[in-house]
Every structure is written in structure tokens, then in C-alpha cells.
Computed example of a mutant assay.
Amino acid sequence: MNLEHLLYIVEVAKYRSLSIAAQNLHVTQSGISQSITSLEKELGLKIFNRSRGHGAIPTDEGRIILKQAYEVLRKVEEIKETANSFSPTEVEELKVSSAPGMTTFLVKAIAAFRHDYPRANVEVSEKWAPAVIGDVRQHKTDIGLITYSTNWNINMDGIAFEALLEGKPKVYVSKHSPLAFLSTITPHDIFDQTLVTYNSESMQCFVQDFFNEYKPLKILFTANNMDGVLQAIVEGLAITFAPDFLMKNYPPVIKGDIIPVDLVNHRPVNISIGLVRSEVKHLSTFANKYIHFLKSEIIKN
């Protein structure tokens, strides 16, 4: 038995597929198959039940072996991390994927983080939430930051999700709109309004849910950045739905050119900013320290 054996069975268990594991580890499928067979013979038990139709499914005994394999691989990562800490020239690296609109939090955390860790190298890529989750699941990035809505269905297998900030959607209108003088807005109050939308999964799901429950509103446009959305609202061309935590720090909202109003008489939809990480990958001490700074920045919001 060697570490390669353990790495192979963990990767196969993660995807229940020898072909995907082989692709991820850049080895041949037959090589992984032979390695697993060799390990099973050495241990005297079957780790997986393998079939064409169902892939590689861990046996009851295999699940116990896999749990211990995870623990061994985590310990190996900790040993490497300890060894690297003895090298003063070592540059710590962290890869983060983020859904659109979340990079402000990440950059603020990096700025605070670099004061204590000047050699830190944090690489941030902006993607839609399913791609963020896919990157974390495939270990292309260490952690991810997404917005998550209770009315949004997505595959979270193998992913640990931690809500960092809870919020709710509000209606955002121009300060010159008659709606700005209302303390609350009902769905019926906005049936004649034109909508501008921000292209994020959680808000698109909310808008579609609203349309399905009541009626479609006229859409002026859907934007991939918030600047166009904000300008359309300021000019009185449209209104929008957005989470309060996303909008509260934009200058037009701070200055009062855009007014947030609570939406009532609509079933509650909770939206949160959440941290996603792999359930099986060990996060370094460096990564956990950055997460601490990130949480602090989000909590300040």
C-alpha cells in the first residue's frame, strides 16, 4: 500500500467513476483499475462494487477504508504544510472562485490579509455560482464565494456550504418614483413597472419565481455588471429586485438616489452570501487564515 493507492480510491469515490478520476489525476483508467485491484487483494476485501451502469460504488467495508484514506491524505498535506513553513522564501498561494458581485468582499479581505502576510498570493476568478462549485469540487480552486437562495436548486454533493451573511430581496426604485414614498411594496404595486435585472443565479431565480406566481413584468434589459442596473434605476427607467447586502454599499443607494423598499405579501425568500469548500480536501492553515479575514469583512457589511 502506498499514497498513490489512497489517492486513487479517494478520487474514484468522489465521482464514482474511474474514467473521471483518471482524467483528473492525469493517469490511465486501466492504471487506476489495476491499482485498486492490487489494493483490494492486499487488504483482502472489496473497496468498490464496479459496474458499467452504476460506476464504482463503495462497499460497506470500503466506506470505512475510504474514511481512513481521507484522514491519511489530510495528514500528508499537513506535513507538507509544516515543511513549507520552515522555508522563509516560500510564497503562500490561494485560489478563490467567486460569483459576480462578491469580488468586493474578496478584495477587501486581501487588502487586510496582506498587512499580516505580505508574501501572500491570492488568485481570484469570477464565475457563475455553478462553475464556482464545480471548481471547488474538482479542486481547481481552494474555496468559493457565492450567493445562495432558498428557491435555487443546485447540486451540492461533496460541497460544504457555510452561510456568512443572511439577507432578503428588496425592491429598488428611483427617489423620484411614487414607489419611493411607500413604506412597503406589494407585488400588485409593481405590475405596471419595467424591470431591469442583474444577471446572477439567485436573483434570476427570484425574478422567474415572481413571474410564475404573479405575471411577467416588462424587462428593460439584463446586465452582467451593476453599473447599468444602477443608472437605469436612477434615471427612473426601471426598478429592480436585489439582495439588501449586495446593494447597500453602492454610492447611488448611500446618497439616496436609489431607495430600497421592503417587498411584502410575497412568500419569504432568504438569500445568503456563502462560503463553499470541498468536504474532502484539507485546507491549509494559510487558507483558513484568509477565510478568517474574509468573514470579518463580510460581517462588517
Rank of each mutant, 00 (worst) to 15 (best):
M1W: 05
L6W: 07
V10K: 15
Y15N: 14
R16I: 08
Q23V: 08
S30I: 14
I36G: 07
T37S: 14
T37K: 15
G44W: 08
N49F: 11
R52M: 11
R52C: 01
H54G: 03
G55W: 02
P58S: 05
I64N: 04
I65G: 02
A69W: 02
A83G: 02
F86G: 00
P88E: 00
E93P: 02
S98M: 06
P100K: 03
F105S: 09
F105N: 01
R114L: 12
H115N: 08
D116S: 14
Y117I: 04
K127W: 01
A129Y: 01
G134S: 12
D142P: 05
G144T: 05
S149K: 05
S149M: 03
N153M: 12
N153T: 09
N155E: 14
M156G: 00
A160C: 09
E162D: 14
L164E: 06
K170T: 00
V173S: 03
V173L: 03
S174R: 08
L179Q: 06
T184N: 09
D189N: 15
D192T: 13
T194W: 03
L195S: 09
V196G: 05
S202T: 15
Q208E: 13
Q208W: 06
F210Y: 13
E213P: 01
K215N: 12
N225G: 01
L230H: 04
E235M: 12
E235F: 07
A238W: 06
P252Y: 05
I259D: 03
S272Y: 04
R277Q: 15
T285V: 14
A287G: 11
K289V: 08
I291Q: 09
F293S: 11
K295A: 10
I298G: 04
